[in-house]
Write a protein that binds this DNA or RNA. Structure first.
Lengths: 64, 64
DNA sequence: ACAAAATGTAATATATAATTGACATTTTGT
DNA sequence: ACAAAATGTCAATTATATATTACATTTTGT
């Protein structure tokens, strides 16, 4: 269960994993792991990522 | 920063903290802490809570 | 083709989410 | 008024999100 939506939003915003990591205050590896899936980030981090990419939680992290 | 939205949704759904905890597979204390605020739950738990209460992430956990 | 940037991934360490058990207080039903 | 249920909260432990360091591979620009 990769997080394609987040990766697409990031690429559309034209920011690298490293840049996004800086923006939200985590390491590049954490961003990489989230996009790779099998990861369970905290709400605070999800929210920070959404704001950095100008999206909402439902946009990037909701799964039916 | 209490999570009022979650508490309201839970009460409207007529489930106790303990019942909700059972539904989503955590302890009552964890639910209590989230509602009390100053807590940073994981995405998986947030999603489980939303589904149990028939809400979305934006409904319960989005903060401007 | 080449160098630089970006990405994938692993091992170990640290911070903190979540558990467990317990008790006090508040709320609800009768 | 009373008992039962629900909630608030604390201390100590366990599980796991995130950091750190490091290296290999892939992608991008020139």
């Amino acid at each position: 269960m990769k997080n394609k939506k987040m990766k697409i939003a990031r690429v559309e915003a034209d920011v690298s994993q490293e840049k996004l990591a800086d923006l939200v205050g985590v390491t590049r590896q954490t961003i990489n792991l989230i996009e790779a899936g099998n990861y369970n980030p905290t709400l605070k981090l999800c929210t920070a990522i959404c704001k950095a990419l100008n999206k909402t939680l439902d946009d990037l992290f909701w799964e039916e």
